[in-house]
Design a protein around this nucleic acid. Structure first.
Length: 485
RNA sequence: GGCCCCUUCGUCUAAUCGGUUAGGACACCAGCCUUUCAAGCUGGCAGCAGGGGUUCGAAUCCCCUAGGGGUCACCA
């Protein structure tokens, strides 16, 4: 049995989006599941559009997701001599030939075809030029391209692990370009040479490549190599069922990261797009990377394009936030607190401990790290305003100011200031004043946090400490009296 | 337009060889829990694109139609 080797081969022309990341994930899972090798290859044969910056970002994104590759990155731009060798060989063997047709000629031909409503196929103008003619063209200074001589009849069959046998009529395939006039190979060719030379056993990629596969098979056949196994995974579509693009809001891994999503959640979510572990028992869809590796197989991959739904991702993220180890969560959440202006760039031990305690209280109601930081505002700042809706209910009742004042006074007398003693005090207060707990707790919560909801009030107060709690109650009492004037 | 792929709740999906009250997850709704908001728990709503066949029996097999997507570049 041949060694399992797969590759993820993005072109560095933009940020890694969720579709590409999902393809990387499937390759990774497949390799891990089968004890194979996962390679990263950078398909940068298009010099104009490729960008160094994107290469770095891409690798960052993959590392962040936890998709560590075993080999690479291999850069196609650094393997040009390999491609040229093979192309020269094909030309010598007459399996490929130089074409001197100008871009204008070709475009004109394409125009005509479009007007006549038929597909344009290269007519084979330069298919059988005599050496003399070639010499003249060359002398004229024309830089030729190289085209692959493709069969005029028969069919090319793609054997796909997910889609079965897909056949293409060779008559619909023309002699396509494998070497551009600038001396760079085209993607279809370079990709094939790499897959063969790097001994890729399984080509797992998005469905958009299915239509190109017969061309690649023709290349491989011309080169005289065996074919890898293909698996074309269904595409990920934007909510409007169109191809993913910037106008669809968050699509790149980087964006999801800065919106406060955890890599584990994103990976989990992506895995379930176009793949399912099977079974239909009750249970959530939460799977760790390790669990997925354990059960991953391509025959459970679906054929239908998937529309991604941020709601579900968000829910998943909430699950991960809740299950995450508190120290880990504090560490990954810290940058969001810094960005929000709640923490300085460098934090001491005290700040980190306080952060952990804050997060412990708030995380249950946060679905993203951004939300986590937002909901923690009052643990760091005193200058919050009061939520308008809650204010109407909690502060505008008769006696609210007095209650706050009384509570503040009684809290002042506490020797220990923990959740239990505070709760005891509140219970006594309710009994003596014959006011229901809710009536008291609501205004106090608003006074202390500015919000109508949140973690247990007594825990908040404990963490805030006696002094800050009391001053907030006094501030609120003053605020109410001001309003009433 | 040619070629290729696809079509199960709003979304992601399950359903060994055709026989299921078509299952789960998110979202939504209701109830419970509760100092609030969440979380959690319980229940509910909701789907086989349409039409023909084949068959005792079709989400499942075949054909047609419709819809969606991809690809036809000196992009990848």
């Amino acid at each position: 049995m041949t060694a399992i080797r797969v590759r993820f081969a993005p072109s560095p022309t933009g940020e890694l989006h969720i579709g590409g990341a999902r393809t990387a994930l499937f390759n990774y899972l497949f390799a891990r599941r089968n004890g194979g090798t996962f390679m990263l290859r950078i398909d940068d044969t298009d010099l104009e559009r490729s960008n160094k910056e994107y290469i770095d970002k891409l690798m960052d994104a993959m590392k962040w997701l936890g998709l560590q590759w075993d080999e690479g990155p291999v850069y196609q731009s650094q393997r040009v001599s390999e491609y040229l060798n093979e192309i020269n060989r094909l030309v010598t063997e007459k399996k490929a030939y130089r074409c001197y047709c100008s871009v204008e000629e070709l475009t004109a031909g394409r125009e005509v075809a479009r007007k006549e409503n038929r597909a344009y196929l290269y007519p084979g103008t330069c298919r059988n030029l005599s050496p003399e003619t070639e010499a003249i063209k060359l002398q004229e200074g024309i830089k030729p391209v190289v085209r692959l001589r493709t069969p005029d009849e028969g069919e090319t069959i793609v054997n796909d692990l997910i889609r079965g046998e897909v056949s293409f009529d060779n008559r619909g395939l023309d002699d396509f370009i494998i070497l551009k006039s600038n001396g760079q190979p085209t993607y279809n060719f370079a990709s094939v040479v790499d897959d063969l030379q790097l001994k890729i056993s399984h080509v797992i990629r998005a469905e958009e490549h299915l239509s190109n596969t017969p061309r690649q098979i023709l290349c491989a056949l011309a080169l005289g190599h065996e074919l890898p196994v293909f698996a074309h995974v269904s595409m990920i579509l934007a909510p409007d069922r169109s191809k993913l693009s910037k106008r669809h809001g968050a699509t790149s891994v980087e964006e999801f990261r800065s919106l406060g999503f955890l890599p584990e959640a994103l990976v989990n979510f992506m895995a379930l797009l176009g793949w399912s572990p099977g079974g239909s028992e009750e249970g959530s869809d939460i799977f760790s990377l390790a669990e997925m590796i354990d059960v991953f197989s391509l025959d459970k991959a679906g054929k239908t394009a998937a529309v991604y739904d941020t709601e579900k991702l968000t829910w998943m993220n909430g699950q991960y936030i809740r299950d995450c180890k508190i120290e880990t969560l504090a560490e990954v959440a810290r940058p969001f607190f810094i960005k929000r202006g709640l923490l300085p760039k460098k934090n001491g031990e005290d700040e980190l401990q306080y952060l952990s305690k804050v997060i412990e209280l708030v995380r249950e109601r946060s679905k993203t790290l951004v939300e986590l930081a937002d909901l923690s505002f009052y643990f760091y700042r005193d200058d919050f305003s009061y939520d308008q809706k809650t204010l109407e209910k909690a502060f505008k009742k008769n006696g609210a100011a007095k209650i706050l004042g009384d509570i503040a006074q009684q809290l002042q007398e506490l020797k220990t200031f923990d959740r239990y003693t505070i709760e005891g005090l509140f219970n006594d207060f309710c009994l003596k004043s014959e006011i229901s707990a809710g009536k008291i707790i609501q205004p106090v919560r608003l006074a202390v946090t500015g919000l109508g909801g949140g973690p247990g009030l007594f825990e908040i107060m404990e963490l805030l400490g006696q002094e800050r709690t009391i001053s907030r109650l006094i501030r609120a009492a003053a605020f109410i009296q001001d309003e009433q004037r």
